[in-house]
Deep mutational scan, measured.
Amino acid sequence: NQASVVANQLIPINTALTLVAMRSEVVTPVGIPAEDIPRLVSMQVNRAVPLGTTLMPDMVKGYA
């Protein structure tokens, strides 16, 4: 099972992602792969992401 990126805190809309804001977890459905965490740092989310939410490619500006 592949680990996905999960919000480690509430991430407000247009907030730049940080290492502290993300964690890796095996979840269903699978979201952005955990190995992409370094690439996600400083990218912005295009919606509010609640704690525990799996990050999907369409939630991160410039990711997809």
Rank of each mutant, 00 (worst) to 15 (best):
N1I: 15
N1C: 14
Q2M: 12
Q2V: 13
A3W: 11
S4D: 00
V6N: 03
V6L: 06
V6F: 03
A7D: 00
A7K: 00
Q9M: 14
Q9D: 08
I11S: 00
I11V: 07
I11H: 02
I11K: 00
P12A: 09
I13T: 12
I13N: 14
I13Y: 13
I13D: 10
N14A: 07
N14E: 07
N14W: 15
T15P: 02
A16I: 14
A16C: 12
A16E: 11
A16S: 11
L17E: 03
L17N: 00
L17A: 00
T18W: 04
L19Q: 07
L19A: 07
A21C: 11
A21L: 15
M22R: 00
R23M: 05
S24K: 13
E25C: 09
E25K: 09
V26S: 08
V26H: 12
V27P: 00
T28H: 11
T28A: 14
P29Q: 05
P29H: 04
P29D: 04
P29S: 04
V30F: 14
V30N: 11
V30S: 13
G31T: 03
G31H: 01
I32D: 01
I32M: 03
P33G: 04
P33R: 09
A34K: 05
A34M: 06
A34Y: 06
E35A: 14
E35Y: 11
E35G: 12
D36I: 07
D36E: 15
D36V: 08
I37Q: 01
I37K: 03
P38W: 14
P38C: 15
R39F: 12
R39Q: 09
L40S: 00
L40R: 00
L40M: 04
L40P: 01
V41M: 06
V41N: 04
S42G: 15
S42W: 09
S42H: 15
S42Q: 10
M43N: 03
M43H: 08
Q44V: 14
V45K: 02
V45F: 00
N46S: 12
N46V: 12
N46T: 13
N46A: 13
R47L: 07
P50V: 07
P50H: 09
P50S: 10
P50A: 11
L51F: 14
L51S: 14
L51G: 12
L51E: 14
G52Q: 03
G52W: 03
T53H: 12
T53N: 08
T54M: 02
T54H: 02
T54V: 10
T54K: 02
T54Y: 02
L55G: 03
L55H: 01
M56V: 07
D58G: 10
D58S: 11
D58A: 12
M59I: 04
M59W: 10
V60P: 02
V60M: 04
K61R: 15
K61T: 14
K61Y: 13
K61S: 10
Y63K: 01
Y63H: 03
Y63A: 02
Y63C: 05
Y63V: 02
A64K: 14
A64D: 11
A64M: 13
